[in-house]
Amino acid sequence: MSTVPDDLRYSKEHEWVRADGDVATIGITHFAQEQLGDVVFVELPEKGATVRQYSSLGVVESVKAASDIYAPISGEVLERNVKVIESPELVNTDPYRDGWMVKVRLADKGELAKLLSPADYRSHIGETAGAGAD
């Protein structure tokens, strides 16, 4: 698995977005989970909540750190990942698939363009382009 998959968009605060039509899946990146260490707790908004781009969406905690998750895009929460709330270690073991956080109905597809490309995110976290693959 790549540490910065090529099919996603990224925020500077280390969230990723996978857009599928007008539904976007949101999670935190491999880099973010590595910085946090073992994730012990995830707090996510209820279904039906609306989130605004760059505002706080939830919280992810390790034993010795707590970080806000910022919404990389705006929209209405369609679903939250109950499995990740029950088993926060999924954020560590599979941040891009089973460790996803919420699915959101995109309010403004234009916001996606404001996010970082995989290449930009790699340079943001200090990786040289293309060197992100395991």
Partner: peptide
């Protein structure tokens, strides 16, 4: 559950 506490969460 120390993330509630001042030495980690500081002003939060």
């Amino acid at each position: 559950l120390q993330t509630r506490e001042q030495h980690i969460r500081r002003e939060k």
